[in-house]
């Protein structure tokens, strides 16, 4: 008959591991990046901290991560968070379908973005290899892009990295669409 670990030892070990976990959780509390369920914040593929104090990551050389500790915008380099909507809406786009890709360590999201009469009319996710299912961001984020006419989308709960990838992909597609 196989030896069995005693229930007392199981309890003690469980408590010890639980304590280690709790300590790690508390130590990382300040820098935790996972967005709590039911919340959504803005993201940015721009690196550095903008004047509003909100963190962001670069859209040029993607270092996209799920580590954003706060909201940020998807503004291009040199653009402040406060000006995030103005540039996006003022930019003129040529008609056509444009491809864009966003990549980070969790995977890649590619989009095909369609512009008609200078407006974004469709965003199709053509590739999604991130940790999370495509269904987490599709069709929510494409619809958000069409509604906002901008790559500046809100972070979806539990899919931070996928959202950043998506935002970068749309941003890259719009860069090609610029007149």
């Amino acid at each position: 008959m196989a030896a069995r670990i005693s229930n007392r030892l199981i309890t003690l070990c469980s408590l010890a591991i639980g304590s280690i976990y709790a300590a790690g959780y508390l130590v990382t509390e300040a820098s935790a990046s996972v967005v709590p369920n039911g919340t959504a914040t803005s993201i940015s593929p721009q690196s550095g901290t903008n004047p509003s104090g909100k963190t962001s990551v670069s859209s040029g050389s993607q270092t996209g991560s799920a580590t954003n500790s706060g909201p940020a915008s998807t503004a291009p380099k040199g653009q402040t968070h406060q000006g995030k909507t103005s540039t996006a809406h003022k930019t003129q786009y040529k008609d056509g379908t444009f491809q864009g890709t966003g990549t980070n360590i969790y995977g890649t999201v590619s989009v095909a973005l369609t512009v008609k009469s200078g407006r974004i009319t469709a965003v199709n996710i053509t590739q999604c290899t991130t940790h999370y299912p495509q269904s987490v961001i599709d069709p929510v984020l494409p619809q958000m892009v069409i509604a906002k006419q901008s790559w500046q989308v809100d972070i979806l709960t539990g899919a931070t990295a996928s959202t950043i990838d998506f935002a970068q992909a749309v941003y890259n597609a719009l860069q090609q669409a610029k007149l």
Binding site: Y25, T28, A32, V34, G64, S65, T67, G158
Partner: peptide, 15 residues
Amino acid sequence: GLPSDTPGDALRVPF
């Protein structure tokens, strides 16, 4: 650790 893969991530749902 990496800026994109922090202990804070690994210790939380869903990771």
